[in-house]
Amino acid sequence: MTTPMALLKADSTYTFKIFRYDSKTPEKEPSFSTYQVDVVPGMSVLSALLAIRDEMDGGLSFRCSCRSAVCGSCAMAMNGKIELACRTQVASLGSDLIILEPLPNFEIIKDLVVDMIPFWAKYDQIKPWLIRKTLPVGTEIRQSEEERNRIDQFVHCILCAACYGACPVPSRDPEYLGPAALAKLERFVLDSRDERSPSALEAVNNEKGVWGCDTLFKCIEACPKDVRPTDAIVGLRKSLVKHKFKKLLGMVKDED
Protein backbone atom coordinates (compact mmCIF):
# COMPACT_ATOMS: atom_id res chain seq x y z
CA MET A 1 0.00 0.00 0.00
CA THR A 2 1.66 3.18 -1.07
CA THR A 3 -0.97 5.78 -1.78
CA PRO A 4 -2.42 6.36 1.69
CA MET A 5 1.13 7.04 2.87
CA ALA A 6 1.49 9.52 0.05
CA LEU A 7 -1.55 11.31 1.39
CA LEU A 8 0.19 11.91 4.67
CA LYS A 9 1.64 15.35 4.12
CA ALA A 10 2.74 17.51 6.98
CA ASP A 11 -0.07 18.79 9.18
CA SER A 12 -1.11 22.31 8.40
CA THR A 13 -3.59 24.95 9.42
CA TYR A 14 -6.39 25.98 7.09
CA THR A 15 -8.69 28.97 7.28
CA PHE A 16 -12.36 28.12 6.92
CA LYS A 17 -14.81 30.85 6.02
CA ILE A 18 -18.31 29.55 6.52
CA PHE A 19 -21.56 31.13 5.40
CA ARG A 20 -23.87 32.10 8.26
CA TYR A 21 -27.52 33.02 8.08
CA ASP A 22 -30.63 32.26 10.09
CA SER A 23 -34.02 32.46 8.39
CA LYS A 24 -35.53 32.95 11.86
CA THR A 25 -33.82 36.33 12.07
CA PRO A 26 -34.02 37.54 8.45
CA GLU A 27 -33.26 41.11 9.52
CA LYS A 28 -29.70 39.97 10.23
CA GLU A 29 -27.66 39.99 7.03
CA PRO A 30 -25.85 36.85 5.92
CA SER A 31 -22.21 36.80 6.97
CA PHE A 32 -19.15 34.58 7.10
CA SER A 33 -17.54 33.15 10.23
CA THR A 34 -13.84 32.40 10.15
CA TYR A 35 -12.15 29.46 11.87
CA GLN A 36 -8.61 28.13 11.93
CA VAL A 37 -8.52 24.35 11.70
CA ASP A 38 -5.55 22.01 12.07
CA VAL A 39 -6.02 19.64 9.20
CA VAL A 40 -4.57 16.16 9.53
CA PRO A 41 -3.66 14.28 6.38
CA GLY A 42 -6.65 12.80 4.56
CA MET A 43 -9.13 14.92 6.52
CA SER A 44 -12.42 15.56 4.77
CA VAL A 45 -14.24 18.88 4.73
CA LEU A 46 -16.97 17.18 6.76
CA SER A 47 -14.46 16.16 9.44
CA ALA A 48 -13.27 19.75 9.58
CA LEU A 49 -16.87 20.95 9.96
CA LEU A 50 -17.45 18.47 12.78
CA ALA A 51 -14.28 19.64 14.50
CA ILE A 52 -15.43 23.25 14.22
CA ARG A 53 -18.84 22.43 15.67
CA ASP A 54 -17.45 20.26 18.46
CA GLU A 55 -14.58 22.51 19.47
CA MET A 56 -15.24 26.06 18.36
CA ASP A 57 -18.82 26.85 17.52
CA GLY A 58 -21.65 24.60 18.73
CA GLY A 59 -24.19 26.76 16.93
CA LEU A 60 -22.98 25.97 13.41
CA SER A 61 -25.63 24.11 11.38
CA PHE A 62 -24.91 21.65 8.59
CA ARG A 63 -26.31 18.24 7.66
CA CYS A 64 -24.47 14.94 7.68
CA SER A 65 -25.17 11.27 8.26
CA CYS A 66 -23.19 8.45 6.64
CA ARG A 67 -19.81 10.26 6.17
CA SER A 68 -19.15 7.76 3.35
CA ALA A 69 -20.74 9.38 0.28
CA VAL A 70 -23.84 7.19 0.20
CA CYS A 71 -26.57 9.09 2.07
CA GLY A 72 -26.54 12.38 0.15
CA SER A 73 -26.85 14.73 3.16
CA CYS A 74 -23.85 17.00 2.83
CA ALA A 75 -23.74 18.49 -0.67
CA MET A 76 -22.50 22.08 -0.51
CA ALA A 77 -20.29 24.55 -2.33
CA MET A 78 -16.62 24.34 -1.33
CA ASN A 79 -14.56 27.12 -2.87
CA GLY A 80 -17.35 27.23 -5.41
CA LYS A 81 -17.12 23.52 -6.21
CA ILE A 82 -20.33 21.60 -5.57
CA GLU A 83 -19.61 18.25 -3.96
CA LEU A 84 -20.29 16.11 -0.91
CA ALA A 85 -18.33 17.50 2.05
CA CYS A 86 -17.66 13.97 3.31
CA ARG A 87 -15.80 12.79 0.23
CA THR A 88 -13.89 15.99 -0.41
CA GLN A 89 -10.46 16.12 1.15
CA VAL A 90 -9.54 19.53 2.46
CA ALA A 91 -6.14 19.28 0.79
CA SER A 92 -7.73 18.51 -2.58
CA LEU A 93 -9.20 22.00 -2.81
CA GLY A 94 -5.76 23.38 -3.50
CA SER A 95 -5.95 26.39 -1.20
CA ASP A 96 -5.40 27.05 2.48
CA LEU A 97 -8.49 29.25 2.47
CA ILE A 98 -11.67 27.18 2.28
CA ILE A 99 -14.97 28.96 1.68
CA LEU A 100 -18.05 26.91 2.46
CA GLU A 101 -21.46 27.97 1.20
CA PRO A 102 -24.85 26.30 1.08
CA LEU A 103 -26.02 24.48 -2.04
CA PRO A 104 -27.17 27.03 -4.64
CA ASN A 105 -30.74 27.13 -5.98
CA PHE A 106 -32.24 26.47 -2.54
CA GLU A 107 -33.69 28.69 0.15
CA ILE A 108 -31.38 28.79 3.13
CA ILE A 109 -32.82 27.79 6.48
CA LYS A 110 -29.71 28.18 8.57
CA ASP A 111 -26.00 28.35 7.74
CA LEU A 112 -25.30 25.41 5.41
CA VAL A 113 -28.74 23.83 5.83
CA VAL A 114 -31.05 24.48 2.88
CA ASP A 115 -34.74 23.84 2.42
CA MET A 116 -35.03 20.56 0.52
CA ILE A 117 -38.85 20.52 0.49
CA PRO A 118 -39.21 21.87 -3.07
CA PHE A 119 -36.64 19.34 -4.26
CA TRP A 120 -38.62 16.45 -2.77
CA ALA A 121 -41.86 17.88 -4.13
CA LYS A 122 -40.39 17.70 -7.64
CA TYR A 123 -39.23 14.16 -6.97
CA ASP A 124 -42.76 13.21 -5.84
CA GLN A 125 -44.22 14.85 -8.94
CA ILE A 126 -42.68 12.42 -11.44
CA LYS A 127 -44.30 9.40 -9.69
CA PRO A 128 -41.01 7.85 -8.60
CA TRP A 129 -42.17 4.29 -8.13
CA LEU A 130 -42.57 1.15 -10.23
CA ILE A 131 -45.91 1.14 -11.98
CA ARG A 132 -47.02 -2.37 -12.67
CA LYS A 133 -50.46 -3.74 -13.52
CA THR A 134 -49.89 -7.45 -12.98
CA LEU A 135 -47.51 -9.31 -10.72
CA PRO A 136 -46.34 -12.92 -10.74
CA VAL A 137 -47.33 -14.91 -7.65
CA GLY A 138 -44.59 -16.25 -5.38
CA THR A 139 -41.70 -15.32 -7.62
CA GLU A 140 -39.86 -12.32 -9.05
CA ILE A 141 -40.60 -10.43 -12.24
CA ARG A 142 -37.89 -11.70 -14.57
CA GLN A 143 -35.40 -9.15 -15.83
CA SER A 144 -32.35 -9.91 -17.94
CA GLU A 145 -28.89 -8.75 -16.89
CA GLU A 146 -28.87 -6.46 -19.90
CA GLU A 147 -32.19 -4.91 -18.87
CA ARG A 148 -30.92 -4.41 -15.34
CA ASN A 149 -27.76 -2.76 -16.67
CA ARG A 150 -29.82 -0.26 -18.63
CA ILE A 151 -31.02 1.41 -15.42
CA ASP A 152 -27.79 0.97 -13.51
CA GLN A 153 -26.35 4.48 -13.62
CA PHE A 154 -29.67 6.01 -12.51
CA VAL A 155 -30.04 3.49 -9.69
CA HIS A 156 -26.82 4.93 -8.24
CA CYS A 157 -28.40 8.36 -7.66
CA ILE A 158 -28.32 9.31 -3.96
CA LEU A 159 -30.59 12.37 -4.33
CA CYS A 160 -27.98 14.64 -2.77
CA ALA A 161 -29.17 17.47 -5.05
CA ALA A 162 -25.62 18.41 -6.09
CA CYS A 163 -26.87 18.33 -9.69
CA TYR A 164 -29.78 20.62 -8.86
CA GLY A 165 -27.44 23.01 -7.11
CA ALA A 166 -25.10 23.08 -10.12
CA CYS A 167 -27.84 23.43 -12.74
CA PRO A 168 -28.14 26.89 -14.34
CA VAL A 169 -31.88 26.53 -15.06
CA PRO A 170 -33.57 26.72 -11.61
CA SER A 171 -32.30 30.24 -10.99
CA ARG A 172 -34.25 31.44 -14.02
CA ASP A 173 -37.18 29.03 -13.66
CA PRO A 174 -37.73 27.79 -10.09
CA GLU A 175 -40.41 25.43 -11.34
CA TYR A 176 -37.99 23.47 -13.52
CA LEU A 177 -38.08 19.83 -12.35
CA GLY A 178 -34.33 19.57 -12.43
CA PRO A 179 -31.83 16.84 -13.27
CA ALA A 180 -32.39 14.54 -10.26
CA ALA A 181 -36.16 14.18 -10.68
CA LEU A 182 -35.85 13.67 -14.43
CA ALA A 183 -33.10 11.07 -13.96
CA LYS A 184 -35.35 9.26 -11.50
CA LEU A 185 -38.17 9.28 -14.06
CA GLU A 186 -35.89 7.81 -16.71
CA ARG A 187 -34.80 5.14 -14.20
CA PHE A 188 -38.42 3.88 -14.21
CA VAL A 189 -39.12 4.50 -17.89
CA LEU A 190 -36.07 2.38 -18.77
CA ASP A 191 -36.97 -0.37 -16.28
CA SER A 192 -38.21 -3.40 -18.22
CA ARG A 193 -40.69 -4.09 -15.42
CA ASP A 194 -42.34 -0.68 -15.45
CA GLU A 195 -45.66 -0.38 -17.27
CA ARG A 196 -46.37 3.36 -17.22
CA SER A 197 -47.96 4.43 -20.47
CA PRO A 198 -45.92 6.58 -22.85
CA SER A 199 -48.51 9.31 -22.41
CA ALA A 200 -47.47 9.52 -18.75
CA LEU A 201 -44.42 11.34 -20.05
CA GLU A 202 -46.61 14.20 -21.26
CA ALA A 203 -46.32 15.68 -17.76
CA VAL A 204 -42.66 16.49 -18.48
CA ASN A 205 -43.17 17.38 -22.16
CA ASN A 206 -42.71 21.10 -21.52
CA GLU A 207 -40.29 23.81 -20.42
CA LYS A 208 -40.67 22.84 -16.75
CA GLY A 209 -39.64 19.36 -17.74
CA VAL A 210 -37.31 17.89 -20.35
CA TRP A 211 -37.33 20.92 -22.65
CA GLY A 212 -36.10 23.23 -19.90
CA CYS A 213 -32.61 21.69 -19.88
CA ASP A 214 -29.86 23.78 -21.49
CA THR A 215 -27.67 20.66 -21.98
CA LEU A 216 -24.69 22.36 -20.40
CA PHE A 217 -23.83 19.10 -18.54
CA LYS A 218 -23.23 20.90 -15.22
CA CYS A 219 -25.20 18.13 -13.50
CA ILE A 220 -22.88 15.45 -14.84
CA GLU A 221 -19.88 17.41 -13.62
CA ALA A 222 -21.38 17.82 -10.14
CA CYS A 223 -22.63 14.26 -9.59
CA PRO A 224 -20.58 12.47 -6.92
CA LYS A 225 -21.87 9.08 -8.10
CA ASP A 226 -21.07 9.29 -11.83
CA VAL A 227 -24.73 9.55 -12.82
CA ARG A 228 -25.37 11.40 -16.09
CA PRO A 229 -28.72 13.17 -15.69
CA THR A 230 -28.38 14.75 -19.13
CA ASP A 231 -28.47 11.23 -20.62
CA ALA A 232 -31.81 10.78 -18.88
CA ILE A 233 -33.19 14.06 -20.17
CA VAL A 234 -32.07 13.33 -23.72
CA GLY A 235 -33.51 9.82 -23.39
CA LEU A 236 -36.85 11.17 -22.24
CA ARG A 237 -36.91 13.66 -25.10
CA LYS A 238 -36.31 10.84 -27.57
CA SER A 239 -39.11 8.77 -26.03
CA LEU A 240 -41.47 11.73 -26.33
CA VAL A 241 -40.57 12.42 -29.94
CA LYS A 242 -40.87 8.73 -30.80
CA HIS A 243 -44.28 8.57 -29.16
CA LYS A 244 -45.41 11.68 -31.02
CA PHE A 245 -44.45 10.17 -34.36
CA LYS A 246 -46.17 6.92 -33.54
CA LYS A 247 -49.28 8.89 -32.70
CA LEU A 248 -49.07 10.86 -35.94
CA LEU A 249 -48.72 7.64 -37.89
CA GLY A 250 -51.74 6.21 -36.09
CA MET A 251 -49.62 3.47 -34.52
CA VAL A 252 -50.89 4.18 -31.00
CA LYS A 253 -54.18 5.36 -29.64
CA ASP A 254 -54.27 8.78 -28.06
CA GLU A 255 -54.55 7.80 -24.42
CA ASP A 256 -55.25 11.27 -23.10
Binding site: E140, S144, E145, V155
Partner: peptide
Amino acid sequence: SIIYEMEHWGCPFSRFPDGS
Protein backbone atom coordinates in the same frame (compact mmCIF):
# COMPACT_ATOMS: atom_id res chain seq x y z
CA SER B 1 -41.89 -13.55 0.19
CA ILE B 2 -40.27 -10.41 1.65
CA ILE B 3 -37.74 -10.41 -1.20
CA TYR B 4 -40.39 -10.92 -3.87
CA GLU B 5 -42.47 -8.16 -2.37
CA MET B 6 -39.55 -5.73 -2.55
CA GLU B 7 -38.83 -6.84 -6.10
CA HIS B 8 -42.47 -6.28 -7.07
CA TRP B 9 -42.26 -2.80 -5.58
CA GLY B 10 -39.40 -2.07 -7.94
CA CYS B 11 -36.22 -3.05 -6.15
CA PRO B 12 -33.47 -3.30 -8.79
CA PHE B 13 -31.70 -6.47 -7.65
CA SER B 14 -28.76 -7.74 -9.68
CA ARG B 15 -29.77 -10.62 -11.94
CA PHE B 16 -28.56 -14.03 -13.00
CA PRO B 17 -28.48 -14.84 -16.74
CA ASP B 18 -31.91 -16.52 -16.42
CA GLY B 19 -33.41 -13.23 -15.20
CA SER B 20 -33.82 -14.35 -11.61
